[in-house]
């Protein structure tokens, strides 16, 4: 089996498998969360909390008090750099948009490749900084579980291989493209079974927190 056949498998059956497992796992994950249920709030609320819930979904993406240099500065700066970088790379590189177009029929304008490239570098640097922080900060060392390193690696691999593929580093493009798509598939497969689910469940978490605080008249 040569690399061309590997790429073909990765772009075809492999992707189907990964998507299937991803959706399988996420469906389980979300149903498990929602079927647990919660008690209705019987207290006389100040508002329904709906608006507050939506506001919290949005506001927790912004730095507290609009100040990105808040303490702990390291986590804030590199946390934002990584997530923004990843977001731009994921959603604004033309080939990535084509995937969405093929799978969902949705597409939108792409950013120029060199711009995406800069964001990739930002994201890669930020991820390495965050890893270093995790390995050295006493607080984070204490909190970190092996899974934290696993999800770091799962996220880092597509970024690095994508960057290397674009710049033809080390290996032929076909190899790198295979590794890149393969690493994304690995990410998809393990996504529902690790804390990577936060990318989806944080909206549920923010919603409940915002809504419950909103009912008490606090914008959380």
């Amino acid at each position: 089996m040569n690399i061309e056949a590997v790429l073909l498998w990765i772009r075809g059956p492999g992707l189907g498998l990964a998507l299937g497992i991803f959706l399988f796992g996420m469906a389980i994950k979300l149903l498990e969360i929602f079927l647990l249920g919660r008690k209705k709030n019987l207290a006389a609320v100040r508002s329904s909390g709906v608006a507050a819930g939506f506001r919290t979904i949005l506001s927790r993406s912004l730095p507290p008090d609009g100040n990105i240099l808040r303490r702990p500065r390291f986590t804030f700066i590199f946390g934002y750099a990584f997530h923004i970088g990843l977001f731009v790379v994921m959603f604004f590189l033309a080939p990535h948009i084509e995937v969405s177009h093929a799978l969902l029929g949705l597409s939108w304008p792409a950013l120029p490749t060199p711009v995406v490239d800069v964001f990739t570098i930002i994201s890669i640097i930020a991820m390495m900084a965050l890893l270093w922080h995790r390995l050295t900060s006493p607080l984070l060392k204490y909190l970190t579980t092996p899974q934290d390193y696993l999800v770091w690696a799962l996220t880092f691999a597509p970024l690095l291989s994508g960057y290397m593929a674009y710049h033809h580093l080390l290996l032929p493009y076909t190899w790198l493209l295979s590794i890149h798509i393969g690493s994304v598939e690995l990410l998809l497969i393990l996504f529902p079974f690790t804390k990577l689910t936060h990318a989806f469940t944080l909206f549920i978490a923010r919603w409940y927190t915002g809504m419950m605080a909103g009912q008490k008249g606090v914008q959380s």
Partner: peptide
């Protein structure tokens, strides 16, 4: 080139339905 080389709809639908059932 970045598009799936085969139709992944069935695998995705299967995964979703199976996941919904198991979930």
């Amino acid at each position: 080139l970045s598009e799936p080389s085969v139709n992944t709809g069935n695998a995705a639908a299967f995964g979703l339905v199976a996941g919904a059932a198991v979930g």
